[in-house]
Structure formats: C-alpha cells, structure tokens
Amino acid sequence: MFRRLTFLSAGFVVAASIGSPASAYMVYVSNEKDNTVSVVDSTTKEVVRTIDVGQRPRGITISHDGKFIYLCASDDDTIEIIDTATYGIVGSLPSGPDPELFVLSPDGKTLYVANEDDNLVTVIDLESKKVRAEVPVGVEPEGMGISPDGKSMVNTSETTNMAHFIDTETNEITHNVLVDSRPRFAEFKPDNSEVWVSAEIGGTVSVIDNASREVKHKITFEIPGLRSEAIQPVGVRITADGTKAYVALGPANRVAVVNAKTYEVEKYVLVGQRVWQLAFTPDQKTIISTNGVSNDITFIDVATDEAIQSVTVGALPWGVVVSPN
C-alpha cells in the first residue's frame, strides 16, 4: 500500500514537469508466461502494442540500428527476429535448444547465445544466420556479457559457478573464474576494465578485474527486515560514464544502486515483486526493471534514483530492451 502511494505522488511530479518531454523510446518487454512482448512508450509510459511471439519468451535484445528485435523463444528452441516497423516476426535464428540469454557484439554482426541444456555457448553470424562456433562451457550457461571493445565475452554457468572468458577471435575459453552460487548475469564496465557478475543464490556481485581476470571485490547486500536468502541478485547494468551500477535483487523486490568506483551500495529502490532484468534508455536518464510476479515494469529516474512509475505489462515480465533511437 505504501509503495503504491509513493508511486502516485511521484506520478504527479512527472505530470507537472511535462513541458519538455524527453524523446520517446520504445521499451520492449518479454512476458515469459503469456508468450507476448509488450511495447511501452517511454514518454507516455503506456503499453502501445502487444506482440504475440513464440513460447516462453525470455532474453531480448535489439539491433544497433533499432530495426530488429531478437527474442529467445525458449520453449520453441529458437530465436525470433521481430521487425520493429511492422512488429511482425520476420525470421528466426538457429539458437540450439532452450535459448535463454544472449548478447550482441559491439559491431552488431554476431550474436552469442547461452544454451542451458547443452552446456554450450552458440556463436551465430547474423548476416548468414548460421552457427559459426559452439563453445563448451560449464553446467547451465546463462549470463552473457561482451566487452565494449568486442575482444572478449563472458558466459556464466549457473551450476558450475564460473565466469568463462571467451576470446572472440578464437572462440576459445581463456580463463575460468569461480564466483558465488548461481551466477546469472555478466556486465562489462564501459572502459573494459571490469566485469560484474551477479550470483543469485550466493547473494553477491563479483567484480572481476579484466586484466588479471581475478575477483577483486565482492559486493554484498543487506536490507533491514529481509532474510539474506531473499536477496538474489540477477540483472546488472552500469552507466555509460562508469560511475553507477544498478543490480536487480529478485524476490527482495528492490534494485540496488551501487557506486561503481567504491562498490558501496548507496540505495535500495523498491520496485515490484521478483525483479530480474534491467535496461537503460539510450539517454541514460531512466532505467527500467522487469518485476515478474507483479506483472509490471518500473521506471527509475537515474538522476535521483527514485521510482517514477510502474506500468502493467503481460504475465511474468522477464527481459527488457529499449530502442536505440
């Protein structure tokens, strides 16, 4: 109840300041339970369209020109390509079974996919839509991050509990770094210096030095009144200037705001239930969380770290990506 009231009052503030609207972006949310993608206007914060997609949509990303959405339809064992002009499904990619998360290379040419059932990372050439390589990794590969310089990518394996560093030239593993239990997500710092890896059951985020490939710091979370078991870090996003990080804390229903230089947790933002994934708007003014159990997404103001508004989407929202333009 308290949370709703907070949102209402925050909503009035936004309404009052509509004079110089930020440019509108489209926010695409994959809804795991009802096989849809919700399209939300970032300015009006309204659902403008619901796209029917394949079964159990989870990982979602978008081409750098904003023309195509790539979507893991996990139970259909495929990656669907959605045309953002028509919202029609215009093709698919050979993902291998049960794709869950993936990452697009900085040059936009390659998609790296985690195949949980086969302990593989599948490397797909987007132009030819063919599999270029398969890299054997640990048990239950999930998190996928790629360095901004495109030279290395990191996959996390949820039961092996490692971050596997893969050289994108050779498609071979160069380093295996042990992290805490059930690593879910890997995010590079924009300057290539660090990789942040969340551990859902371990309850931590490991900061791995990208030069030495060793864990240099472990971020822990503590929320008064919450059992430590309920704090389960999943999605991680770091601002383009490398100063601040946001960590989605799952059933703790909060997003942690972390100082990316000192690693201190500065704030916990209450959003919705079971918060998993996060995405910035391209202007970096807003970050959006998917709150699975409450069927909504929350817009957080990056300047103030206040929750601005929650928007109801489909059933069990899982992943989120924002159009680049």
Binding site: G138, V139, S157, T159, T160, M162, N176
Partner: peptide, 10 residues
C-alpha cells in the same frame, strides 16, 4: 556428470 563438466576446467 555436472561435477565433471566443472571438473574439466579444474
């Protein structure tokens, strides 16, 4: 089997 997948790296 799971332990051996991990053990391969160690």
């Amino acid at each position: 089997g799971d332990n051996n997948t991990t053990g391969r790296f160690l």
